[in-house]
Every structure is written in C-alpha cells, then in structure tokens.
C-alpha cells in the first residue's frame, strides 16, 4: 500500500506540473470565470413576461398578457438556470477532453514508453490522471457556482453529482483516447461526444419526446439532477441522477482500466 502511495504521489506531482505547463489549469479558470461572471453579474435573475406586441412596438397600447401555465409557481432565477446546462456542456466535456489530451500527449511525446519501462502500474497511471482531472473539475465547479449561485455550494449532493459525472467522463475520455494515435485523429470523436453530450440542453429549451433517448447520457442526469438539487425539484430525480452517474463512472472505470492496461501499456508501435 505504501508503495502505491509513493508511486501515486510521484505521478500526481508530475501530472499537476504538466497540467500547469500545458495550461489546462489556465483554460479551466478562464472558462469558469467567464461563465461565472456571465451567470452571476450579466444575466438577469428574472425576466419580465411581455406580449410580443409590447416588445416589438412599445407604447402601442395595452396588449393581453402572455399565457403562463402556473402563474403562482415559484420560478428559479433565470441566470441560475444556465448552471446545470454548463455542467452538461462545459464541465463534463472538459473532463472528457482533458483526460484524452493527457493520454494523447503521452503518446505523442513518447513518454508513455518511458513510463512502461518503469515500475509504475496502469492503475497508478489512471489514478493520477483521474485525480488531477477531478481537481480541475472541482476548481471549475467552485468558481462557476461560487460566482453564479454561491448558496448552491453548501449542498454536498450537487458537488457529488458533478464530480461523479466529471470522473466518468474523464475515464471515458482516457479509455477512448487509447485507441487513437494523436490529437488530430481524436478531433472527430471529441466533436461527436461534445455534440451528443449537449443534446439534453435542448430538452430544457423545448421539452420533447423525440429526445427521450438522451436519458441514457450522463449529461442528461447531471443537467436535470443538478436542476432538481438547486431548485428544490423531485428527490426521485436526484436519486436517479446520482445512481446513474455512479453507475456510468463504474462502467467508464472498467473501460479505461482495460484500455490502459491491455492496450496502451502493450502497444507495439
């Protein structure tokens, strides 16, 4: 066990240094700050419903108010509605991308061969990269939520849900990157994962049965799970989201573990 801890801390220090030198930390902080400031200080917390005539032709007389289904229902702040969406389309995708980038850089620089002729194991390699990416995700989360909806930081379920999803996406990214030679080749899977992962966002804008299949995506659960946690939604949705993301992370861990151990550490070219 002490051997693992020594190896793990060695790799952790190295990966942290590389994350800094490759500016992954900088990118994370800048993105989180931009979205955090946008949500916290630029977007309004409430929109005043107006009829289309009033918007297009102000002062054209009193127009009928727009129809609202539940006028008495407590509406979540408009700006904070973007935070769950950002968990799905920003944090999760960044986790996927950074995990893959770390593996592809090791392939590109040949440092994976260097690692392979040392006493470190596949699990040391994976654990270190996962931990660094979770650190980046946590940093992104704290800045974004801290600026956009500070009170939500107090709910550990939200942190747990977001970190579980990011862990799963990071592991998925690592596992998938193993099968590609370089970043240029990986661009297409990255684009596909980014686009498909963002699909649940459209359900927020336009609820529709046609996108029901997005229930199978972790981004669906982090989006609607986070929404339920932040805006006092259905506890069953929260439980389902946490359960799904935990299961996804376990499956992704198996996938990336097998990929790293059986393929990355045994490549012949």
């Amino acid at each position: 066990m002490s051997g693992f801890i020594t190896r793990f801390t060695t790799l952790l220090k190295l990966d942290a240094k590389l994350a800094l030198r490759h500016k992954l930390v900088h990118v994370t902080v800048v993105i989180a700050l931009v979205f955090g400031v946008l949500v916290g200080f630029v977007l309004p917390s409430e929109l005043t419903p107006r009829a289309i005539d009033q918007v297009v032709e102000p002062g054209a007389g009193v127009a009928p108010a727009p129809t609202v289904l539940e006028p008495e229902a407590k509406k979540p702040p408009f700006n904070q509605l973007f935070i769950p969406i950002l968990f799905a389309v920003d944090l999760s995708v960044l986790g996927f991308m950074f995990g893959a980038v770390m593996v592809l850089q090791d392939k590109d620089h040949g440092t994976i061969r260097w690692f392979r002729i040392g006493p470190g194991t596949s699990w040391d390699y994976l654990a270190s990269k996962l931990t660094i990416n979770l650190g980046l995700s946590l940093l992104n989360f704290v800045i974004l939520v801290g600026l956009g909806a500070p009170a939500a930081l107090a709910d550990p379920r939200l942190t747990l849900l977001v970190l579980l999803t990011c862990a799963g996406m990071t592991l998925f990214g690592i596992g998938l990157a193993v099968f590609f030679r370089n970043l240029a080749q990986f661009f297409f899977p990255l684009a596909v994962v980014g686009l498909v992962g963002a699909m649940p966002m459209y359900l927020v804008l336009t609820p529709t049965a046609e996108l029901g299949w997005t229930w199978w995506l972790p981004t669906y659960h982090v989006l609607f799970g986070a929404e339920a946690i932040m805006f006092a939604g259905d506890p069953a949705v929260i439980r389902a989201a946490l359960g799904f993301c935990a299961a996804f992370t376990l499956v992704a861990a198996g996938f990336s573990g097998a990929g790293v151990d059986r393929r990355l550490m045994r490549e012949t070219h």
């Binding site: 190295l14 240094k17 040949g110 440092t111 061969r113 040392g118």
Partner: peptide
C-alpha cells in the same frame, strides 16, 4: 533496468532537471 532510447522521449514543457525527477519517485 535502465533504458536509454535512441529517440528521446521527454516531457518538452518540463526542464531538464524536472524530466530527471519526473519518475524518480517510482524507483525504490
């Protein structure tokens, strides 16, 4: 074992010293 590869495989963004120290902790 110690292996010196013909084609250098280094962490380009790390210094020479950091490259030497990178995996040193893995070796007992």
């Amino acid at each position: 074992i110690g292996v010196s590869f013909e084609h250098p495989n280094l962490f380009p963004r790390l210094t020479g010293l950091e490259n030497l120290e990178a995996f040193l902790g893995l070796y007992p």
